[in-house]
């Protein structure tokens, strides 16, 4: 009963925070002489009022679900994964690499291989931060931020110097056998949008996280470590091992974030494809209070904002969406403190 009350309070608080954010955002709209009500209305109608819009929303939400899960799993373990952006890039590159290197394999080998490569790439990248924390005690916040930049430089090197396609900033195309089909090609729904079946991978990842944390002994230990590290130590849990493992899992999930773009849309890896999805994932995890199903909903909300920004770009610069994203995060963490809800208070 306590849990239910808490969840309702959290949900209500989030809604209030979003409303406050929209109000603050409307100040920016008003300052440039436009009517906020009209702008917001257009945003929601254009995104949700037709199947193409909904398709775009879901397309944009897909990678956010994965980065949100990544950050959430790390939070469950008491770790702060700011590195989802870098993990996603490494994973996406690995996915593309598998896709264009093993092009002769049939789809039932290549697709799993491509997906696995993405997972392993992200997992490896994140476990660097995990090992640094477990072995040397150095804090994962700064390390993951640094690793983000190293990752971006690394993939830039691979794309520009090794696997380059001249006059572009992307890799060679992946084999057709690695494609993840669009929904409109498969079913005729969401016509025109790049919404593809990598979304299913994202949903499966949610289920996997749910199962891991709530139904397996490993998940129990990870959760315990995050809630009370001292009690976990006294219960003889291997904190070092759990730290590295949690980061690896988190990184692996983030690594799958590239499937949407690489396998489902452009069919190559391109520098800058991630568009800060890793950082937005932090917002998603926070607002959804690390709940896998909440993450789906919150990702869709951010997807509405992202695509909606494009829709209202004729009236108001689409960057209003970016402004809203920043304000929402600040409002949520501030309101959480005022009403003393579950959120991070400190970094240590």
């Amino acid at each position: 009963m306590n849990i239910l009350k808490k969840n309702i309070a959290n949900g209500l608080g989030t809604v209030i925070a979003i409303i406050i954010s929209l109000i603050i955002g409307s100040l920016f709209i008003a300052v440039i002489g436009k009517n906020p009500y009209i702008v917001y209305l257009k945003l929601f109608i254009d995104t949700l009022g037709n199947t193409y819009g909904i398709g775009q929303v879901l397309f944009k939400a897909t990678p956010l679900i994965l980065t949100g899960l990544s950050v959430a799993i790390a939070f469950k373990a008491g770790l702060f994964n700011i590195g989802a952006e870098g993990q996603m890039n490494i994973g996406a590159f690995a996915t593309a690499w598998a896709g264009f290197t093993f092009e002769s394999l049939p789809w039932y080998f290549l697709i799993p291989l491509s997906i696995t490569a993405g997972f392993i790439g992200g997992a490896f990248w994140a476990s660097i931060a995990g090992v640094l924390k477990a072995r040397f005690g150095s804090h994962e916040v700064i390390n993951t931020i640094m690793l983000n930049f190293i990752a971006l430089a690394l993939v830039s090197y691979f794309v520009n110097n090794v696997y380059f396609v001249p006059a572009t900033i992307h890799t060679p195309e992946i084999s057709q056998n690695a494609y993840l089909q669009r929904f409109d090609a498969l079913t005729g729904l969401f016509k025109g949008s790049p919404f593809n079946i990598s979304f299913i991978a994202a949903l499966l990842a949610c289920l996997a996280m749910y199962y891991l944390i709530w139904k397996t002994p490993l998940g129990y230990e990870i959760n315990t470590m995050g809630l009370n590290k001292n009690a976990a130590k006294y219960a003889k849990m291997d904190i070092k091992k759990l730290t590295v493992l949690s980061m690896a899992i988190a990184g692996g999930i983030a690594g799958l974030g590239g499937l949407n773009f690489v396998n489902g849309y452009k069919h190559y890896f391109e520098l800058g494809f991630s568009e800060n999805a890793g950082y937005i994932g932090i917002a998603v995890a926070l607002i959804a209070r690390n709940n896998p199903f909440g993450i789906i909903i919150v990702s869709m909300f951010f997807g509405i904002l992202e695509y909606g920004g494009l829709a209202i770009n004729t009236i108001v610069p689409k960057e209003i969406v970016t402004i809203l994203q920043g304000i929402i995060i600040l409002t949520v963490i501030t309101l959480s403190r005022i009403f003393d809800w579950e959120t991070l208070k400190s970094t240590k």
Binding site: Y279, L286, T322, I323, Q325, G326, L330, I333
Partner: peptide
């Protein structure tokens, strides 16, 4: 007393948006 890291990241996102806007 909210989380300082998250606040910093949020402000960076906000700054990107405000300047481009």
């Amino acid at each position: 007393k909210a989380n300082q890291i998250v606040s910093g990241i949020a402000i960076n996102i906000l700054a990107l948006g405000i300047t481009k806007f």
